[in-house]
Structure formats: structure tokens, C-alpha cells
Design a protein around this nucleic acid. Structure first.
Lengths: 125, 125
DNA sequence: CCGTATCCTGCACGATACTG
DNA sequence: CAGTATCGTGCAGGATACGG
């Protein structure tokens, strides 16, 4: 059956897509990457730059991101202990993914907005 | 400050990215899109093509996907009622997104596998 | 055949307090 | 400063049964 083969090919797509989604989805991951990318490298700095995040959440997400090799954790001073988080070069490989998601998200939002305008002509600024 | 501006630009990225993730993340959405894309168009067919999915889950996801204009729901016969689900042309716009995620996911898995080998060597030594 | 209706469970995520 | 430790909660998703 050709259908079965096609189905299998598609499942070969689903797995890596899910792997990728696991890495970048979630409430904080992108925000943390962004915060580090603009120069925040200390735990407390990152925490203060992301309204609403708790130290528990930040610690967990930082570990995840480090495990996925998207950020690096460096001890820069042992007493008093100081840590520096930086983006790994590997994080750059995410650029096409982020861009594709961003472009589609913008376009999709426009499409949804267009639909809303049909219902109500209110435009919020 | 230029930092503040950069930070703002990045937040302008986060929102559409999250919008996009909301649409395609989740346990079943991609599988359903795939199932329909290979020719399954009846509720029961789709259900049987995706091992483990319950009617409740399928119904919910189909509604979401329809709301996001990725699939179309057509009543093809009123008694006994028969429904046909098809991919909306708009779903094609997701292709670059899926491809980017897939490529990155494949590459990332390779990278993790490579690292595992290093880790296990370090541990065993 | 195409779904709803109930009920249930796990886990992502939060609040708050505390420590080397 | 850079995190843990505890405790708590909401909600995505599951099991099972039933209805038009």
C-alpha cells in the first residue's frame, strides 16, 4: 500500500518535529534565551529581566537549556560564587526555526484579525 | 539605551512565535494533520490511523485545527450523517515551519547522540 | 458513524520560605 | 548571589460510558 508508506514517511517527520518542539516550547525558554542574548548573564539579572518568573522556574529552565547545549554556565569566581550564563554558538542554529515560527505567527495573527474585522469593525490601537 | 530597544525587538519576536507554537504544539495536532494529508477524511478513519487517541481528544483537536483554519469540516450527507475533514490550503503555509523544525530536530538528535557517547566514556573511565 | 458526558490523573508551573 | 525545599494548583490529556 502506498498509503502506508506515506504515513510512515510522515511519522519520520513527526518525531524530529516533536524533539524540536520539546526544546523551545514552554512558558519561559524563549524569554530566557532572549534575555541572555541581550546581555543578561547573571541568574539574578535574568530573573529581574523576566517579569513573573520564579527562581525555581528559572533554575529548571536554565538546566534544560544547558542540557540542550543552547546556553553555557560558567563559574567565574568561586568566593563569593559568581556564575555567568551565555548563549552557546549552537543556539544560533535555532535562528531558521525561530524565524519560520515568527513569520508564520505574524501572518496567522493577521489572518485571525482579518476574520475578526468581519464580525466587528472595532480597531484597537 | 540600545539594550532596551533590543530587548523590545526580541519581545516582538516572542509573541508571534508563541502564537505559532500554540497552534502546532500538543500531543496530537501534527499527527492529525498528517493523517488527513494522507487521505483520511472521516472521524473514525482518523481515529483508527492514530494509535492511542480517544474520540474526546480527537474531537477537541479537530475543533482547534478548524478554528485555526488548517482543516475544513464538511457535512457530505445528512442522514445518516457523514462528515469529511480535509486540509485547508492554508495548512500549506505551515510547510516552512514544519521543515525548519524537522531539520533542526534531526540535527539536534544527532548532536545529543554524539554527546551521549562522550558522557558514557567519561563516566566509565 | 460522529461525536458528548463524566470522572480522573499526572505534571507543568506557581507561591513562599530558606540556605551555602 | 544563586539557587533548593515544600507545598500547592490548574489544566492538558486519559478512561469509560453513553447519545443523536
Amino acid at each position: 500500500m502506498t498509503k502506508k508508506k506515506e504515513h510512515l514517511d510522515c511519522l519520520n517527520t513527526v518525531k524530529p518535529v516533536r524533539d524540536a518542539l520539546d526544546v523551545i516550547s514552554g512558558k519561559w525558554k524563549l524569554l530566557i534565551i532572549i534575555s541572555i542574548s541581550v546581555g543578561n548573564c547573571r541568574f539574578t539579572d535574568i530573573q529581574e529581566s523576566i517579569p513573573g518568573i520564579t527562581p525555581r522556574a528559572l533554575a529548571k529552565e536554565l538546566k534544560d537549556l544547558e542540557h540542550h547545549m543552547l546556553i553555557k554556565r560558567l563559574i567565574v569566581e568561586s568566593y563569593p560564587i559568581k556564575i555567568s550564563y551565555t548563549l552557546d554558538d549552537y543556539a544560533k542554529s535555532l535562528t531558521p526555526v525561530i524565524d519560520a515560527l515568527k513569520d508564520w505567527g505574524i501572518n496567522h495573527q493577521k489572518k485571525l484579525d482579518g476574520n475578526k474585522l468581519i464580525d466587528s469593525k472595532e480597531i484597537s490601537s
